[in-house]
Design a protein around this nucleic acid. Sequence first.
DNA 1: CTGAAAGCGCTTACAG
DNA 2: CTGAAAGCGCTTACAG
Lengths: 357, 357
Amino acid sequence: MNQAVNPKPTITDVARAAGVSKGLVSFALNDRPGVSARSRDHILRVARELGYRPSVSARSLSTSTSYACGLVIARDPEIISADPFFPSFIAGVERVLVAEGRALVLSVVGGDEHEDAVYRTLAADKRVDGVFLTDLRRDDPRIPLLAELGLPAVTLGRTPGSPFPAVALDDTPGTAAATQHLIEQGHRRIAHVIGPLRMMHAQRRHAAFAATMAAAGLDAGLVEETDFTAAHGAAATARLLDLANPPTAIVYDNDPMAIAGLGVAHERGLRVPGDLSITGFDDSEIARYVYPALTSVRSDPQLWGEAAARSLLAAIADRDPVADVDLPPAHLVVRASTGPVSTGPSPSGPAPTGARA
Amino acid sequence: MNQAVNPKPTITDVARAAGVSKGLVSFALNDRPGVSARSRDHILRVARELGYRPSVSARSLSTSTSYACGLVIARDPEIISADPFFPSFIAGVERVLVAEGRALVLSVVGGDEHEDAVYRTLAADKRVDGVFLTDLRRDDPRIPLLAELGLPAVTLGRTPGSPFPAVALDDTPGTAAATQHLIEQGHRRIAHVIGPLRMMHAQRRHAAFAATMAAAGLDAGLVEETDFTAAHGAAATARLLDLANPPTAIVYDNDPMAIAGLGVAHERGLRVPGDLSITGFDDSEIARYVYPALTSVRSDPQLWGEAAARSLLAAIADRDPVADVDLPPAHLVVRASTGPVSTGPSPSGPAPTGARA
DNA sequence: CTGAAAGCGCTTACAG
DNA sequence: CTGAAAGCGCTTACAG
């Protein structure tokens, strides 16, 4: 207005322009009690006119707060790539963080060997005020570590003995629905190709698979554990199909493995779904464009990110415990890769791709 | 040693324990000239014994430096997911950043509408000391913006009129090799399904395609522009195959689109590569597990990330200009989705998946 | 309701 | 080569 927007006005400039002390400006800006309405309005207006933005580093120093949240991903980059989860999750996190003037500090470490050091450094350097805990593992060492470091956290999914708030999106209904869907199509031998069993979600999903099979009086013993890569998915599929009595349907724990399974089936001249039905998980964008279009399980990682960010900010700010949040569960999306067991003769040997019968 | 590791010793504790002034400790730690070797060694040893780590926020305040670098990705999360580039790139960046005690601040914005605001906020809040510029566009508005903001940057690829150092990984040899490979297989009508033309790499790759076609005396007019999604890849493929004189080979600008193209071909009962050859780009992990295994173009995003981080840190630290860096170019990986034009009769109509002829 | 002052933990001229 | 002091821009008791 009157004054040109100087290179970064400070709180001192605002105080001077408003004719009050720096302390009062600070109180008004952080709307704390003990400032008259008139003063507050006046100060806020002057601050806006000056284009004032508090210095993050100065605030950080005096409050020991970084105004940032951290996410450390302990997966091989190739596996992250294959998974549509993280980019969407991060987009959701960002959406609420920026609205609160917070930044996201991301760290990707190859495996979980160095993650301990990463969390310690993040805490020691006060780089973040709290962290998102994804890919929860059984007896996850990060829980006691963060408790020891005094670093607030939010977990994606509940885990026993955790002092941190959880944001849960139940994906077991998705796996159960996929299994049930196959059973209803007449399948009796159904295999489950799962992720690393040390990850809680892999365990939970497998439990859902097993329970659904058991409820139908079927054997749930056909299981292959993988590391979530397409390579493992392909290998697991090959092993299953080499069985004397191979499955007629396979439930995969992510889309890349399911797509790799599709490849193996095609290579062997099997018809999908005629000879082998296949379901994926995560419903990545390519899922509906492979042939046949992949039946998969869909959740909402972006929503998950938003909810997790809100809970984390609450946990950072609040004295009192933050309540757990439950998001709408994952659900099955049926496409063309699943169907009834074929009655025709089972073909054998490799076939030229998609050649007509 | 003698003293218990108190909750976060400060520079004052170190100075007291070493019997010197804070200033001298600071000089020793940042190894600046003017400290005797004896003093330096003594101070460094005391600091180590105390487990001293300088406070990032205190250093930030007095040096106006954040000790962090920024990456803002302006793409739809679904598209990021489909692309193996970013996770690997980020892993590379991280590797060198952590070694230098720097953090990575990540921002993902849906499209490029709000990116302007994001960079301004990052700069105003001094959240980062410099940024990585990926997905360069023609007359990229971020170049003048960052120059105006005085924020150091490094660009992935060269771009005319940029004052920032570039780290280039030439991907055009990959596209040229894919095109040449198809020509050598006897293809004459080859289409190019490309990314958004406003992105420089899409333009460059298309130029490489066109040049290779021209060198063989072939028409490079069959082009479809997309947004990099599998959905667009499928639609583009359908349009091309609906042509009165459809192509016998298609060069795609990323793997998800190529895989979607494979799906469309299969759905129409076309044999791959017999009736249609297909090449992808980026060589994602699933590429080799689809059927038939996808011929694709491989680069090294992780190496790119490491080089970019090194250049950015140099640009942040140095007074003098940082030299551009050239990385090994992308190269073709031939698999089963490409081959000679089939001499047999072209099949028509949809076919059951992988059924035997 | 408001002001003056100390303090957060560093870095950096300025003297000696 | 070393020390004492000011300053970075906030927040927060402490007085009034």
